[in-house]
Write a protein that binds this DNA or RNA. Sequence first.
DNA 1: CGTTTTATGGTGGTTACTCG
DNA 2: CGAGTAACCACCATAAAACG
Length: 276
Amino acid sequence: MEIGQRFNPYKLFTGCFIPNSLAKYKGLTALSKLVWARLAQYAGEDGICYPSLKTLAEEVGATKQGVIKAIKQLIKEGFIEQEKPSGMEMIMHKTSRYYFLWHSVFEADLRPEVTSQSKQFLPPSDKQNLPPSDKQFLPKENQLKRINEREYIYSNSIQFSNENFMPTSPETSLEISSSKGNNNETGKHKQADIVFDEETYTFKGIEPFIDKWKSAYPAVNVETEIKQMESWVMSQPKTRWKKNWKRFITGWLSREQERQEFRKAKFGERRSFLDD
DNA sequence: CGTTTTATGGTGGTTACTCG
DNA sequence: CGAGTAACCACCATAAAACG
């Protein structure tokens, strides 16, 4: 690929993701939406992120002041909540924590079948998913619906695609297809081989293994990694495609699990998966 | 009626400063 | 060091007014 050459950006990049409903929302500036997207990308499985204003500003191409204004607007409009450092945290120059709030505009992006079927993929509860040190920062549950509950709905959020990011069809949705699954149709307990669909650039037949992988690799966001795999495979020449995709996927997840554990051991806590 | 000019508000940048 | 405020400035989009 040469500079200036035409190319197809479809599923080619990873990066920030702005839901359609948020993009259309008129109560936020463009920068606010970008900041939201960046924060969403920072947020890990626990749905919390804590980048510094300086870092945020650098990564969205704005100034610290601009980011402050954007964050204020996001808070005012009810999209995020901010926990400012206090006490020892302030002394230790800790950064603010940002929680995502479920907003009415997001409902517009949820098709009925997605809303009902996605429930089973939500984490058991907020607190169970939070590290102990984070529990003290949990706002009142009845006031707050952290957006990581919907994380799986937007699990392909770090991909750049021309299509709607919502998993609207079984062909493009791990979540929905897993609820239907091969078992219902072809029956019973026969496990089909995993194949890589050349047209949709997605893995087919992985649904029966998702839960297994989740429990086997708890430090890994399986859905996100699958998307990254699909993106990676897509960029590879077909001659390099694997024959045994299941082995490829488990190998990838295993490697990622080790990396996450190494990170935890080395850095104590992860600030963001973007710090890779 | 269409085009140009002007006024206004929103947004964001820079700098300096304070606070804990 | 991180977060925040304030004053000032520039830019841009929009609406209204002026003009031919």
